[in-house]
Amino acid sequence: MSDVTRILFAIEHGDAQAVDKLLPVVYDELRLLAAQKLSQERPGQTLQATALVHEAYIRLVGSEGQNWNGRGHFFAAAAEAMRRILIDNARRKQRQKHGGDHQRVGLDDADIAIEEPSTNLIVLDEALTKLANEDRVVADLVKMRYFAGLTLGQAAEIIGVSRRTADRYWAYARAWLYQEITKSEKPPSQ
């Protein structure tokens, strides 16, 4: 049994601390996987979060856990991990843009470059943190849907709500976050 499987079992069996152990492992693996995936490809090649997360799952847990409940924890952790990876990158880029740390990017700052996203990730993340304080479950759903690329159906299953509820949560979260971001950046034009 792999480390991750063991942790997932522990979570399943109510070991709350195990959740804390899961995230770093998933985070490391996803980073490494992303970095290696990308270094295998020619510049300009793209990579899908969904594929990355699923591959990480297969590697870490194995295919035998395909229909197993514990995987919800894994994907939750993966979504959080992906969020951190992407936000870290966005932060680093921002630093570079401001003429800041022009020095080497060590291995720990993987060689992932993110093209100018349509959404300012850092601002989004701040808003998301606020939302999480207000409504943890809705924020988790956003992480899964947005950062880990899961479908709403998959996310619903993991969170343990109906698909219809997930749709509603998602609509709510989008409106909430949009409002929050537009409020902080500039007053909405209308």
Partner: peptide, 16 residues
């Protein structure tokens, strides 16, 4: 808003 994932088309290989 948020419907397009942040990565997918936007993560590319930086100069390694």
């Amino acid at each position: 808003f948020l419907e397009e994932p942040p990565i997918g088309s936007i993560v590319t290989l930086g100069d390694p």
